[in-house]
Design a protein around this nucleic acid. Sequence first.
RNA 1: GUGGGUUUAGCUCAGUUGGUUAGAGCGCCGCUCUGUGGAAGCGGAGGCCGGGGGUUCAAGUCCCCUAAUCCACCCCA
Length: 432
Amino acid sequence: MAIDRPKGTKDHLPDGSPKLSLDVQASAFAHVQETARRVLERAGAQFMATPLFEEAELVKRGVGGSTDIVRKEMFTVYYFGDHGGFILRPEGTAGMVRAYLQNGLKQLPAPLKLWTHGPMFRAENVQKGRLRQFHQVDYEVLGSTDALVDAEAIALMVDVVRALGLSGVRVKLGSIGDPADRDNYNEYLRGLFTPHLEHLSDDSKDRLTRNPMRILDSKSAEDQDLIRELAVRPMLDFLGAEASAHFAEVQAYLGAWGVEYDLDPSIVRGLDYYRRTAWELHHEGVGAKSALGGGGRYDGLSAQLGGPEVPGIGWAFGIERLLLALEAEGVSLPGTPGPLLYLAAMDAENVGLAAQIARSARAVARVEFAYKAQKPGNAFKDAERRRARYAAVIGTDEALRRVLNLKNLVSGEQREVALDDLNTVLTELENN
RNA sequence: GUGGGUUUAGCUCAGUUGGUUAGAGCGCCGCUCUGUGGAAGCGGAGGCCGGGGGUUCAAGUCCCCUAAUCCACCCCA
């Protein structure tokens, strides 16, 4: 093969392909999207979609200039002759909020629940559960600060994943407070760690200036020793009165609904616009970080993009990571079903008739036909490989008498059906 | 950006201390089998041994570079 697919991308393959795993099975992707649609739309979310590329400025302002996403993971799009400065979107929220503001969706009754799905792009090195083009399901609620909205969002994220048959997920829940709370906490951490600089790992020395909260979930043993020695207080101790009450309310609702979660003080959002409630969904099967998805409240984002104050909250999970988790649990998703009926003609002059019957039968069911005349033995072999439930071979006798011999490929039983009755019979067979 | 493993047919893999026409199983196509499938037998197609350079009389095999892939770090979905 002369040309391979670009690094960090996957082809989505039809059922039956060699090397097929759930994360590249096109029908599994479709099933995730359909399940998300069902669960989210029943909860009142409406589907919308935004472009795959946006102004670079949107992502810089929306995601934050100090994040790794902006510093080293953006794909710049160079190829629009009349206008430059576009990038492939690295996440969904900035575009959703941009579209909300630009299209006047503030006119719709608030809070407005939206959802979308599609590819995201990050220029990262590849490993398990991490790609350069990956896909997310995304849920956003705009126009409310109510803690009930937070709790419902978290519960819905769990609902979608559960509806797919995944069981081993954990919600890690935290609150990063309001901006002043976070500033206070970062100041506390800097004051605490700076005198012990020489005991921190090199990575954490860097974190101390860029994002001190990251030190707390460092994988380095020396960092963890130091954290224990210094008896570092958790972020939750620094929440202001309002953020604290809000967080208590979120937990009360989750408790009332029986949504399980673990309080995790080390929850840190990588994106600058988060406020208050922040959470992640974890599963063992998805790779080193084990995060299936994450979410949080972003009340400051709209204003940061130059719009009015519009509170918001949202989450996203990675479809590939979800499929890895399902695969790890051995959950199988429904694939594309085979045809209900496979038709073949024995003689070249009846191929056209087979095609005509198939085309009219497609009004009620999935029906395929052979493009060349086939001997009965080969016709049934073919029908079997295509996973048809029924097969019929048309010879001169059937053509003259205007009938089909429908053969059940599992039981081997045959029954004769008049062509005029075919669609009625197929409808019955489809329904049982 | 960094570190380690891997790369031979569509798939899973053999291939000896370098030795001349690179193999198997599965899959695919055909035949045995001109009105009834899942089996068996026989035959066929399909490889610049990831790419480039080097050593050698001779390289799938040894050396260097490069790419892809897998896993991990940073970070994230």
